[in-house]
């Protein structure tokens, strides 16, 4: 599985990022977050705490929400990685983005990409969440600006629009 038996040196690893197969040279213990931002220039994924607490670095790994700061890039080999850059063309994601914009769910914007990914993941699993479920689903994503209320409202609105269509 690993082409990198000598894990201490940089080696080439194949990733699938936003539908594209990409080969990167990195240390196996490089964080997926740093590879995405530094090597691939996908700076829409943010770092807030580096310890899996704030969710700013959320990405989708094989469709599940993960904190990319806690993932050694070696463990992301062969997985399908989606970042905010890769979700822009998804119409359900766009609906969510529009609801965020209209309802004031983004303030300083630093938690916004991670928050959108967490919300998207939630709506994929539960298209019609209750307010409680939204609050639980987003509890791993810290936001210091909004007090979350307008975010929760935006996710509820997007869910409603999603089924209304």
């Amino acid at each position: 599985m690993s082409d990198c038996p000598q894990g201490r040196s940089k080696c080439e690893m194949a990733l699938r990022v936003n539908g594209e197969r990409i080969v990167v040279r990195a240390y196996p213990m490089d964080r997926l977050l740093d590879v995405l931002r530094g090597e691939l220039g996908l700076t829409g994924t943010k770092e807030g705490c580096g310890e899996g607490e704030c969710g700013a670095c959320s990405v989708l790994l094989d469709g599940t929400l993960v904190n990319s700061c806690l993932i050694p890039v070696l463990q992301a080999q062969d997985a399908e990685i989606r970042t905010i850059e890769g979700l822009r063309s998804d119409s359900r994601f766009q609906e969510l983005q529009e609801a965020f914009l209209e309802l004031g769910a983004a303030q300083c914007g630093i938690c916004t990409p991670g928050m959108l990914l967490a919300a998207f993941h939630l709506l994929t699993k539960k298209p019609q969440p209750t307010i409680e479920e939204i609050r639980e689903g987003l509890a791993g994503n810290l936001c210091r600006c909004t007090g979350y209320q307008q975010i929760v409202e935006a996710v509820a609105e997007a869910a409603w629009r999603g089924t209304a269509v």
Binding site: R37, T43, G44, Q97, G104, A106, G109, I110, T112, L116
Partner: peptide
């Protein structure tokens, strides 16, 4: 009027540029 945030679109698409970007 609740006009949309000027820089809102760049924030919801992850294109807004922070110093570490």
């Amino acid at each position: 009027t609740p006009v949309s945030r000027k820089e809102g679109r760049s924030k919801i698409t992850g294109q807004a540029r922070y110093v570490d970007d």
